[in-house]
Computed example of a mutant assay.
Amino acid sequence: MFHIEDKEFIRGKVPMTKQEVRCISIAKLDLKEDSILIDVGAGSGSVGIEVTNFTPKGKVFGIEVNPDGIEVIKQNLEKFSVTNYELIEGLAPSDIPQIEVDRMFIGGSKGNLDTILEWFLCHSKEEAKVVINTITLESLGEAMKGLEKLKFCEIEVININIARNKKIGRYNMMMGENPIYIISAKRSK
């Protein structure tokens, strides 16, 4: 099992969850080797593809509606020779097949967060876990309201701020990335 560095992914102009955020998000998913994950708003596929390294007996279903994202995911699946990942070209939750999952990662919801969480409740095993990444306070508030309304438990929010050094002459200057909220929760019994 290993993590993949950002520079290894084909990205194009598609959003990608940065490696430090990916590491924490994947840790919060509390994966098992046979976990079945749905990656909603898969973007470049970085989260789902990295998850396949931790779920050799499981499977990842990545759903993406953006044609550019779909193409980048296909390229990354080929580059990393991933075999336990199925790409769904469409919009969540309407285009997700009738599958049972025990983990869900939401990197983008296209305004459908409540119905995506409802889908998860109908198609997940007991004590299944969900992780949601957001960058806006509005999305954070929406996620919290949705999780509480649907009676998720063990809801936790963390905020991370990443800064990377950038060489300016002979000095290093820290350049901040967008702060990210990582929300994790467990399905109630």
Score class of each variant (00 low, 15 high):
148 E>R: 15
31 L>P: 00
121 L>T: 11
104 M>F: 02
50 E>M: 05
113 L>F: 04
135 I>F: 06
131 V>R: 01
10 I>G: 02
79 K>R: 09
6 D>Q: 12
59 K>M: 15
84 N>Q: 06
170 R>S: 11
117 L>H: 07
89 E>Y: 09
21 V>Q: 08
89 E>M: 10
68 D>H: 08
78 E>G: 07
48 G>D: 00
36 I>R: 12
162 I>E: 06
162 I>M: 12
107 G>N: 09
147 L>C: 07
38 I>S: 03
4 I>H: 00
145 K>C: 14
149 K>H: 15
142 E>T: 12
185 A>T: 12
134 T>R: 04
110 K>F: 13
90 G>K: 02
26 I>R: 01
45 G>C: 07
37 L>M: 13
158 I>H: 09
155 I>C: 07
83 T>M: 14
4 I>E: 03
80 F>P: 00
27 A>M: 11
180 I>W: 00
61 F>W: 12
154 E>S: 10
27 A>R: 06
158 I>M: 13
119 W>L: 01
18 K>S: 09
65 V>M: 13
55 T>G: 06
166 K>E: 10
28 K>T: 02
21 V>F: 11
179 P>Y: 05
63 I>W: 04
120 F>P: 00
173 M>V: 15
8 E>T: 11
118 E>K: 15
85 Y>H: 10
4 I>Q: 03
6 D>M: 12
58 G>K: 08
138 E>V: 12
51 V>R: 02
109 S>R: 03
186 K>F: 01
41 G>R: 00
82 V>H: 04
188 S>D: 07
155 I>K: 07
79 K>V: 01
99 I>R: 14
112 N>C: 02
47 V>G: 05
144 M>I: 15
178 N>Q: 12
45 G>P: 01
6 D>Y: 08
183 I>M: 03
53 N>A: 10
62 G>W: 02
96 I>D: 05
7 K>G: 13
85 Y>K: 08
186 K>I: 14
165 N>W: 10
17 T>F: 12
76 N>E: 00
73 I>K: 05
157 V>E: 04
5 E>G: 08
178 N>D: 14
91 L>G: 06
186 K>T: 14
31 L>S: 05
131 V>D: 00
180 I>S: 02
25 S>F: 09
154 E>K: 11
107 G>T: 12
50 E>L: 05
34 D>E: 13
179 P>I: 03
56 P>W: 03
80 F>V: 05
8 E>G: 08
4 I>T: 10
112 N>V: 07
179 P>G: 05
80 F>Y: 06
142 E>P: 03
148 E>C: 14
176 G>R: 10
158 I>G: 06
180 I>R: 02
131 V>S: 00
113 L>H: 04
